[in-house]
């Protein structure tokens, strides 16, 4: 059981960004992808989620043996795929609670209704764990939220929707160290043998708190190096140029 990406090529407006990417995230593991700006990290996240601006030109992704590309964006979500956005959208007038209810309701069998009392209890509980004020239940989704509040909200959604595979796209960007710890704690409570994580980050810092099982380095649309958690430290020390140089020389 895994999220298996095979020889993935994808382009935007005719420009190829992903150039034959291979990656497997088994359930129960946390994998990190690190890489310089422009290496295609965020493109990978959006392609997996099914953003229509990107064209998959070849390759495949299977999620627990289901063909991810055969599913619509919302079907992928309901099948267990989650993306924590780098820049979460704002939805004016739609409260956090209503949005999450709608998302959970969409997962219910036809004709069955979500238990509202249970829902609110769970939501409040998880907000507490993330240090979110209870008034966020009634606030419009991400509207007027600070960068840190938006990221917490992404993790709240992750916790509520409990996906099989979660991709975190630069979740650490724009977070101060306290917020980073809270967000990381939230993710850590969600680590489970039934769930795989792919943590995309530019900096090693996040990986101090979400300790990965495997670290991949991405450059020019491909995974160029894979190692244990120490690889992140090595990258931090030597910088990405080291990987690039290694690439050129190899």
């Amino acid at each position: 059981m895994s999220l298996l990406i095979t020889d993935l090529h994808a382009a935007i407006d005719g420009t190829e960004i992903l150039k034959g990417l291979n990656l497997e995230v088994p359930k129960g593991e946390v994998h990190a992808i690190m890489g310089p700006n422009g290496s295609g990290k965020s493109t990978l996240a959006k392609v997996l989620a099914g953003h229509e601006d990107y064209q998959v030109t070849s390759g495949s992704v299977s999620m627990d043996n289901q063909d991810l590309f055969a599913m619509e964006v919302d079907e992928r979500s309901r099948a267990g795929f989650f993306l924590a956005f780098q820049y979460p959208a704002e939805i004016p007038g739609v409260s956090n609670a209503n949005f999450l209810r709608a998302a959970l309701q969409a997962r219910m069998p036809k004709g069955e209704d979500l238990d509202a009392v249970e829902f609110y209890k769970e939501m409040r509980d998880k907000m507490g764990k993330l240090g979110m004020d209870q008034k966020f239940t009634g606030r419009a989704v991400n509207e007027g939220f600070s960068g840190g509040e938006k990221k917490r909200n992404e993790i709240l959604q992750l916790m509520m929707l409990a996906p099989s595979y979660a991709v975190l796209d630069e979740t650490d960007s724009g977070l101060d160290i306290d917020a980073l710890k809270v967000v990381a704690e939230g993710v850590n409570t969600m680590r489970s043998p039934a769930r795989g994580f792919l943590v995309i980050t530019h900096y090693q810092r996040l990986l101090d708190y979400i300790v990965p099982d495997v670290v991949h380095v991405m450059a020019d649309g491909k995974i160029v190096k894979t190692g244990g958690k120490d690889l992140a430290l090595e990258l931090e020390e030597k910088g990405y140029d080291w990987v690039k140089e290694e690439l050129v020389t190899s």
Binding site: D74, F85, A89, I91, F99, A102, A103, R107, Q157, L161
Partner: peptide
């Protein structure tokens, strides 16, 4: 906005 909501299953 629509993409975001669809990613959550709507």
């Amino acid at each position: 906005q629509i993409f975001y909501m669809q990613q959550r299953g709507l």
